[in-house]
């Protein structure tokens, strides 16, 4: 018995040692969310879906706004549309003592819609069953809770991952796609990178448009999401200045968004008046931006849009 216990314990402890070493190596290459649960609690946040995760660079905003605390805590449409789950997670990421932060809440029709026939039934919200709902610690490194319960893919990706995405320590999700329009300025990538020629770029945009056309059939406007957007604003106003921002998207996507909610800007104006906060509709920059697909700004345009947004915030 003793020999068995000794040998099996040795085996198990050595194995656990290897597991811990591998977990310690997890970084921004590993997956597009993990690092956001490993950084300290924050006082200023960029919030929204993947549009904001890729489209707003905290480094640019910090530089232009003369701050050092802006952090991107945006996820994806499936994980972080406005609702109880996202609000709960935002509160977990916020520093308790702070009250001089800035909060950039990016909005678009999708973020207040629900993929459900009963969009006002909280039970049907997809994000409820996802990790954002149950990962309580958002500032531990390694974050075992996320690694064990939240992460849903193979751990080999900690050691080897060919993904084009890299999550920076400030929460910005960089996607390594070089676009045909900026071929001359193409930087030598420090990471894996994909090059889009004009044909491939168009195919990519068309594919994402088709995806959203399909979504259009199943997504419905949700009063509850609007209620939670307001609740989020209310909570964050206690911690600093809040801004509502609509980010640029591809022209074809604007058409879809207008077709599902033509009065979206009016609704946002109403909310901004109600809470006395600013609403910046940046879709006028659409034609000046380059997108990886119909929805996501590429990295150069993300820097440009972040700078433009910072200018607007500074003017207020």
């Amino acid at each position: 018995m003793r020999a068995f216990l000794a040998k099996s314990s040795l085996f198990v402890f050595l194995f656990l040692g290897i597991v811990l070493i591998i977990f310690h190596k997890a970084d921004g290459n590993f997956d597009p969310f993990y690092m956001r649960f490993t950084t300290p609690k924050q006082s200023s946040l960029i919030l929204g879906t993947s549009k904001a995760a890729q489209g707003l660079k905290p480094s640019v905003l910090n530089r232009e706004l003369n701050r050092n605390d802006v952090y991107n805590y945006s996820f994806t449409l499936r994980l972080s549309p406005y609702g109880p789950t996202y609000l709960k997670s935002i509160k977990r990421k916020l520093k308790e003592s702070s009250n001089k932060g800035i909060f950039i809440l990016t909005v678009d029709p999708w973020s207040i819609f629900a993929d459900s026939k009963t969009p006002n039934d909280l039970k049907t919200f997809e994000e409820k069953s996802k990790f954002l709902n149950f990962i309580k610690s958002t500032d531990k490194k390694p974050n075992y809770s996320y690694l064990i319960n939240g992460y849903e893919d193979m751990y080999i990706k900690i050691l080897y991952n060919k993904s084009l995405m890299f999550l920076h320590s400030d929460g910005w999700l960089e996607v390594h796609i070089d676009n045909f329009k900026n071929k001359k300025n193409r930087k030598k990538p420090n990471h894996r990178s994909l090059y889009f020629d004009s044909l491939r770029h168009k195919r990519h945009i068309d594919a994402s448009i088709n995806r959203y056309l399909k979504k259009k059939a199943t997504y419905n406007f949700s009063e509850i999401r609007i209620k939670y957007l307001k609740k989020t604003i209310q909570e964050l106003k206690l911690k600093g200045d809040v801004f509502l921002v609509r980010l640029p998207v591809h022209e074809d996507m604007i058409e879809i968004e207008n077709s599902i909610m033509s009065n979206f800007n009016d609704e946002m104006e109403k909310i901004s008046n109600e809470f006395e906060i600013d609403y910046f509709n940046l879709t006028y920059l659409n034609s000046k931006c380059i997108f990886n697909d119909a929805n996501h700004l590429n990295r150069e345009s993300a820097a440009y849009v972040s700078k433009e947004l910072a200018k607007m915030i500074n003017q207020e």
Binding site: F11, L14, F15, I22, E152, M154, Y155, I156
Partner: peptide
């Protein structure tokens, strides 16, 4: 022999599906 069992254990850990 132990290295072999470790290989299997590590494969299970690294390549386990969802």
């Amino acid at each position: 022999r132990f290295a072999f069992y470790y290989c299997i254990a590590i494969i299970i850990f690294l390549f386990g599906g969802r």
